[in-house]
Amino acid sequence: MKLVGMLDSPFVRRTFISARMLGVPFEHQSLSVFRNFVEFHAINPLVKAPTLVLDDGGVMVDSSLIIDWFERTATPGKSLLPADAARLQRCLQLTSWGLAAAEKSVQRYYETKVRPEEARSPDWIDRVTGQIRDTYALIDRHVGQDDWLCGDRPTQADITVAVAWRFTHHTAPGLVDDSDYPHLAGLAAQAEGLPAFRAADFT
């Protein structure tokens, strides 16, 4: 299988890290949906990252669906989701909040960096900025005493939340300060030290 997309995308990066942690073999092709549009279009006319090119040549998009496929095809016994029902609920809840933070951060990036300055909406920027901060504040309050968000090992919640946090810092330096979300900042730093995260590093 081949994973196509840039690692500075939170959705590509969470997919890459998930595959590595699940032991799913794949090749990574780093293509930008902007700079490499023609080449990306030849692989997938949707030009959507991440794109997973399956062994039979078919393509799949959407990070959550691709990760679900990895979960179903990983080595038996390997999973990034807790088996316990209560912990699974918590994991999915926190994963959804991490996805929300990533989505709002992407929206803010497009509005402030991609859209022409004269067409930008200050009201929209203020709104998504508030949503980003509120989401991280919510996550910060739910970081518990365990090593990770849902127990003693990293799960999909840790991956998604940490990836979103790094993306926000990368695209909007100073927007969220570690001192305002100390528990979340500590969790993200711990995650970034994992081999799968280091393999998905970007500048």
Results as ranks from 00 to 15, higher is better:
H142P: 03
R120F: 11
S121P: 06
L149C: 05
V114E: 00
R166A: 12
P116Q: 06
E111N: 01
D126P: 01
E118N: 10
K104M: 10
T155C: 11
K104P: 03
Q107P: 00
D147L: 15
T135M: 03
V128K: 01
I139T: 12
T160S: 09
D147M: 11
R120M: 11
V163Q: 02
I159S: 03
A162M: 09
V161I: 11
R166S: 06
R133E: 13
Q107M: 10
W124C: 02
I159P: 03
V163N: 02
K104T: 06
V128T: 12
P116K: 03
L138E: 11
S105E: 09
A157L: 08
Q156K: 04
Q107K: 06
D123T: 13
R120D: 06
A119N: 08
G144V: 14
A162K: 04
E118K: 12
A162R: 02
W124K: 03
Q131Y: 09
P154E: 10
R115M: 10
Y110C: 01
R108Q: 12
V143M: 10
D140K: 09
R166Y: 04
Y110N: 04
V163D: 05
R153G: 13
E111P: 05
E118V: 13
R166C: 04
W124N: 02
F167K: 01
V114Q: 00
V128W: 03
V163R: 02
D152P: 09
R166M: 08
W124G: 01
R108S: 03
H142T: 10
D158T: 08
F167Y: 15
I125A: 10
W124V: 12
S121M: 12
S121H: 13
F167H: 13
V143F: 09
S105H: 07
W165V: 07
V128G: 00
P154G: 06
D134I: 00
V114D: 00
V128Q: 02
E117F: 13
R166W: 07
K113H: 14
A157G: 05
R166P: 01
L149S: 06
D123C: 03
G144M: 13
K104C: 04
S121D: 15
Q156Y: 13
I159V: 15
D158N: 06
P154H: 05
Y109N: 06
D134C: 00
R153N: 08
P154C: 07
R115W: 09
R166F: 06
V161N: 01
T160H: 01
W165K: 02
W165M: 07
T112C: 03
I132C: 01
A157T: 12
A137S: 14
R141S: 15
D146I: 12
P122N: 06
G151M: 14
D147Q: 13
A119I: 08
A164R: 04
Q131E: 10
V143G: 01
D146T: 15
D158L: 11
Y109R: 05
D134V: 03
Q131V: 06
T155R: 04
H142L: 14
A137Q: 15
R120A: 07
E117N: 01
